[in-house]
Design a protein around this nucleic acid. Structure first.
Length: 108
DNA sequence: GCCATGGCTAGTA
DNA sequence: GCCATGGCTAGTA
């Protein structure tokens, strides 16, 4: 089978701007919204090279089970930023995760 | 071959 | 805990 298209980093970064403060999405949902439903791991890899962590809110992307997920500057920093935005945690799990998670439709 | 994921199975307690 | 997945990098030939 020939591969017809690939995930574009720019599309991933652009989509992050659709996430309001205090809300989150997941690696899986970003992949799905871009039409690559099995590319969650690739999304994580792309976010890892985020060239502009100041303006691109990659801290709003978490694991599909509501746990914190990775961050280039450490999970503690990621949790701290999310907490500032109003997200509450139990350990590494978010409170009200299902309420804070955008739908795939909302991401687009 | 590595990795900022995710889904599924085996098998413990 | 295993492994499929997709994008990337190092490093062989």
């Amino acid at each position: 089978m020939k591969k017809t298209s690939t995930l574009k980093a720019k599309e991933v970064y652009d989509m992050l701007h659709h996430i309001p403060e205090g809300r989150v999405t997941t690696y899986e949902d970003l992949a799905a919204a871009l039409g690559f439903p099995r590319a969650s791991r690739a999304i994580g890899r792309i976010l890892h090279n985020n060239p502009n962590p100041i303006v691109v809110p990659c801290h709003r992307v978490v694991m599909s089970d509501g746990t914190i997920g990775g961050y280039a500057f450490g999970q503690a920093r990621k949790k701290q930023i999310l907490t500032q935005e109003g997200v509450r945690f139990f350990g590494n799990s978010m409170a009200n995760f299902s309420r804070l998670r955008l739908t795939v439709a909302e991401l687009r």
